[in-house]
């Protein structure tokens, strides 16, 4: 069974059809790329999966369960995590606290436990901090744990977003332009990290404009144009697909 399966998904904004009858599957353990020119509806697809928008038509199945009309935090708790195209960290909180946000749905302590710091609450808190620190080491940010998030470099802020997403213990990780604004060196590290996450058993779906990155890490690519899927397949096939070349002609000739 596919881990994630989109079926004839459609979303209209007023008169504009942002996503038009899009279907594709993401197999467990895969790294799938979602590409397309600006305004093709890639981020809208992500927002539909994570419940920020409700689709007008179609179905989204995650491990066989429908995600349609579930609230975002419920979807996250089911095992889908995401990062944002424009960095959305909790700027004034520390790096560690940002990661603890991801741990939130794994924890239980409510108002009363929090007011009284019950033994159970303290144990849970310690466990969360240990878990958060190990995730920070995993992405290489453990030394910055007690720094304020806004003081991190741009590339590190991107990594922190990934760390926060990993803290929710996702089965599927959705990355929205993870290499945006990164230099070549940082992108190289990102590729390693993406592969490392997949080796940990996390399925990855990513939007990216850096075509060399997409072609390097993705095993399967879905191409959108004007909200419709125009191609799907492994990188070699996508590179030669005439419709894809047409859609990209003159804009991205470096691949």
């Amino acid at each position: 069974m596919s881990l994630l399966s989109l079926k004839r998904l459609t979303k209209n904004f007023g008169g504009l059809t942002a996503v038009n009858n899009v279907s594709f599957d993401v197999e467990p353990g895969a790294i799938v790329g979602l590409i397309g020119p600006n305004g093709a509806g890639k981020t809208t697809v992500f927002n539909l999966i994570t419940g920020i928008y409700a689709p007008d038509q179609g179905e989204i199945l995650f491990a066989g369960k429908s995600l349609v009309r579930l609230r975002t935090h419920r979807i996250i708790a089911m095992g889908i995590a995401r990062t944002f195209q424009t960095i959305r960290l909790f700027q004034n909180l520390t790096v560690l606290e940002n990661v603890l946000a991801g741990c939130h749905c794994q924890m239980k302590g409510g108002v009363v436990a929090s007011l009284l710091h019950t033994p159970l609450q303290r144990r849970e808190e310690r466990k969360a901090i240990v878990g958060a620190m190990s995730i920070l080491s995993f992405v290489g940010l453990h030394r910055e744990a007690q720094q304020v998030a806004k003081n991190l470099s741009y590339g590190n802020q991107r990594l922190l977003e990934i760390a926060r997403a990993l803290a929710t213990r996702p089965k599927l990780l959705i990355l929205d332009e993870p290499a945006g604004g990164m230099n070549e060196q940082e992108t190289g590290r990102l590729v390693t990290l993406i592969r490392k996450m997949r080796d940990q058993g996390i399925t990855i779906l990513l939007i990216e404009h850096d075509m060399s990155l997409v072609m390097k890490v993705c095993e399967q690519i879905v191409v959108l144009e004007y909200g419709s899927k125009i191609a799907e397949g492994p990188p070699e096939a996508i590179k030669q697909d005439p419709r894809v070349i047409e859609a990209y002609l003159g804009t991205d000739s470096d691949w």
Binding site: I76, R88, F90, L93, T168
Partner: peptide
């Protein structure tokens, strides 16, 4: 605090 800082990111990190 997550709410105050960024509501969308908070919900997107699994906070109700």
């Amino acid at each position: 605090n997550y709410l105050r800082e960024d509501e969308v990111a908070a919900e997107g990190s699994g906070v109700d």
